[in-house]
Amino acid sequence: MDKGIKNILIVGVGGQGTLLTSRIIAQVAVQMSYDVKVSEVHGMAQRGGSVVSQVRYGEKVYSPIIKKGDADVILAFEKLEAARMLDYLKPGGMVIINNDRVDPLPVMSGKEKYPEDIAERIKGLVENTVIVDASKIAESCGNIKAANVVLLGVLSKAISLPEAEVEKAIQEMVPPRALDVNLAAFREGRKLFTV
């Protein structure tokens, strides 16, 4: 049914910058003359809870939200969130995971265990799994907060978004003072994905 539509699910923890990343991807799709829809989360869930934003682009897009089992890519800013939303992935889909751990409350309080091997278990289940040390790479580029753009670099290469178009969108949407770090982080990200 969804022929020609790309479905990208961006998951993370409130405050990690998922919203900006989804907006950059959407902007790239606009530049490439696709029809685009983005679904965002505002309000209460942003306070440190699980957040999901969704980007869909193609010739004609109706629903702004993705069906379970229909995501081409899950871009996860945090390991546990990738696992939580894994049933949205379509057969043959790809998971890109930031190898980063943010403990949720039940783990912080010692009531539950963080499943340490979660990224590896996802990899065992999903052939197309890319695990990235995005936070470390971002730190080496000058700011740990640019981890989202490292992931964007990996994603853009993986789904063949033209480098120049993404850089143009980053230039438009990232504040000027953070631009150099973000572009460097983005380029590092692109290097990480090889077929």
Binding site: Q46, G48, G49, S50, S63, G69, D87, G93, L105
Partner: peptide, 29 residues
């Protein structure tokens, strides 16, 4: 869409991948 697909088109949501273990909840804080 998946809810309409289930109720109106008789499609069950495609659960292609699922981890068996419980994932700790992440409520807002």
């Amino acid at each position: 869409p998946e809810m309409l697909a289930a109720c109106l088109a008789g499609e069950t949501a495609g659960q292609s991948f699922s981890l068996e273990s419980q994932i700790p909840a992440r409520p807002p804080l």
